[in-house]
Amino acid sequence: MFFSSTAKVNKHFFPQNFKIGVANAAAQIEGAWNEDGKGETIWDRFAMSRPERIFDHSSPQVAADSYHKWREDVEMVKEMGVDHYRLSIAWARIYPDGYKTEEPNAKGVAYYKNLLRSLRALGIEPMVTLYHWDLPQKLQDDFGGWLSPKIVDIFADYARTCFELFGDEVKWWITINEPKQICEAGYGTGVFAPGIVSPGVGNYKCAKNVLLAHAKAYHIYDKEFRKKNQGTSYSLHNTLAQIKTVLWLVS
């Protein structure tokens, strides 16, 4: 970077308690889209059946292969010197069809437990998103996914399972990533998975159910897990502007 002799250089520093982190999403980095019991997601179906809709024709099949290379990824994160690592859990890796069963998928659970424990062992605080766009395809096929109020209780069951399984390792939880993109792009314009084109209807229904699912999961954590696990934050993501947009959609 070059500066002219009259340029003002910013000499401010981050405060001592400022935390720096990195972030990803399961569908963007994990790969192994159908390995070890993982079920199909709406992004698996969307990217692989309609590759022309993806800018570079990439897909979740391999992605960054983090499912197999997670140890290397953790080491790279450590080398960067960050304090936090935000990741998402692939719902279909815990419950392949999305529905709560007697036992979650053991290999999927082991993957996340190993990852979370390794991060904490290196002094990196994990921040976990429960839902980052990758709805199990079975739920979309059965009743329309986020278009149906059925999704609220099903998401709550999944959330409770994650709190039970990973609560000892995770103190920062995020319920649902970028509700505007889920609803407007996924169920309104159809440019994102699952590709539903229903402006003024689908996006409104989705927005209502996303908010209800978030609220139900929040109260489950608050009443059943917060005191035990000492969670320090739990919220809808991303940004207040996103939440205001969703509230406007359902108002």
Score class of each variant (00 low, 15 high):
residue 1 M to G: 15
residue 4 S to E: 12
residue 4 S to G: 12
residue 4 S to V: 02
residue 4 S to I: 10
residue 8 K to L: 14
residue 19 K to C: 07
residue 21 G to K: 14
residue 27 A to T: 12
residue 27 A to Y: 15
residue 28 Q to H: 06
residue 29 I to N: 00
residue 34 N to P: 01
residue 35 E to D: 14
residue 37 G to D: 05
residue 37 G to W: 03
residue 38 K to F: 05
residue 40 E to A: 10
residue 40 E to V: 13
residue 41 T to H: 00
residue 42 I to N: 11
residue 43 W to I: 14
residue 44 D to R: 05
residue 45 R to L: 01
residue 47 A to K: 11
residue 49 S to G: 13
residue 51 P to N: 08
residue 51 P to T: 12
residue 52 E to T: 09
residue 59 S to A: 11
residue 60 P to M: 12
residue 63 A to G: 08
residue 67 Y to W: 13
residue 69 K to S: 07
residue 72 E to D: 15
residue 73 D to Y: 07
residue 73 D to E: 10
residue 77 V to F: 12
residue 78 K to R: 12
residue 81 G to W: 12
residue 82 V to G: 04
residue 83 D to Y: 13
residue 84 H to D: 13
residue 85 Y to G: 13
residue 85 Y to H: 01
residue 86 R to W: 03
residue 89 I to T: 01
residue 92 A to W: 04
residue 97 D to R: 00
residue 100 K to A: 11
residue 100 K to L: 07
residue 105 N to S: 09
residue 107 K to A: 11
residue 108 G to Y: 01
residue 110 A to P: 00
residue 111 Y to C: 00
residue 112 Y to P: 05
residue 113 K to H: 09
residue 114 N to P: 02
residue 117 R to H: 10
residue 117 R to I: 01
residue 118 S to K: 14
residue 118 S to N: 05
residue 118 S to H: 09
residue 120 R to I: 06
residue 120 R to H: 08
residue 120 R to S: 12
residue 125 E to H: 02
residue 127 M to P: 07
residue 128 V to H: 00
residue 131 Y to D: 05
residue 131 Y to I: 00
residue 132 H to T: 03
residue 132 H to I: 02
residue 133 W to L: 01
residue 136 P to S: 10
residue 136 P to N: 06
residue 139 L to V: 10
residue 139 L to G: 06
residue 139 L to C: 04
residue 142 D to G: 11
residue 147 L to S: 12
residue 148 S to G: 11
residue 149 P to N: 10
residue 150 K to M: 08
residue 154 I to P: 06
residue 156 A to G: 04
residue 156 A to W: 08
residue 157 D to S: 08
residue 158 Y to G: 05
residue 162 C to E: 09
residue 163 F to P: 06
residue 166 F to P: 04
residue 167 G to N: 05
residue 168 D to G: 15
residue 169 E to P: 08
residue 172 W to D: 09
residue 175 T to R: 03
residue 175 T to G: 07
residue 179 P to T: 09
residue 183 C to A: 15
residue 186 G to T: 04
residue 186 G to F: 07
residue 189 T to E: 02
residue 196 I to W: 04
residue 197 V to F: 04
residue 198 S to W: 05
residue 198 S to G: 04
residue 201 V to E: 11
residue 202 G to I: 03
residue 202 G to V: 02
residue 204 Y to P: 10
residue 211 L to N: 01
residue 211 L to K: 03
residue 213 A to Q: 10
residue 215 A to P: 00
residue 216 K to Y: 05
residue 217 A to C: 09
residue 218 Y to E: 07
residue 219 H to G: 02
residue 220 I to Y: 05
residue 221 Y to L: 02
residue 223 K to A: 14
residue 225 F to P: 08
residue 229 N to A: 04
residue 229 N to S: 10
residue 229 N to W: 09
residue 232 T to G: 14
residue 233 S to P: 03
residue 234 Y to D: 14
residue 239 T to R: 08
residue 242 Q to D: 15
residue 249 L to T: 02
